[in-house]
Amino acid sequence: MPTIRVIDREGKLRELEAPVGWSVMEVIREAGLPIEAACGGCCACATCHVYVDPAWLGRLEPPHADETMMLDEAFQVRDESRLSCQIKVTPELDGLTVTLAPEF
């Protein structure tokens, strides 16, 4: 099973088992990490905002227009900002590293 690496808001790194086909948000949420994911993963809010390790950014499917639009409701948005509900776990993403964005 792929592993994703999540850095929480205290800077602590965790390695989480990530079933293929789950979203990164689901992996983070099911591990009990503090991610609000208010809309439940339908790209209707921006409360699963993460920063993707720049080394991984180019290896992800680029965001759809509605994801880019929803990021307007996030704060401290950077080039490497993504909504984690829109990143699907694949075998190729083994080792993907993301950082939880500040709560807003």
Partner: peptide, 8 residues
């Protein structure tokens, strides 16, 4: 005036 959407 800041409009960053709503939260619950």
């Amino acid at each position: 005036l800041a409009f960053y959407g709503l939260k619950m």
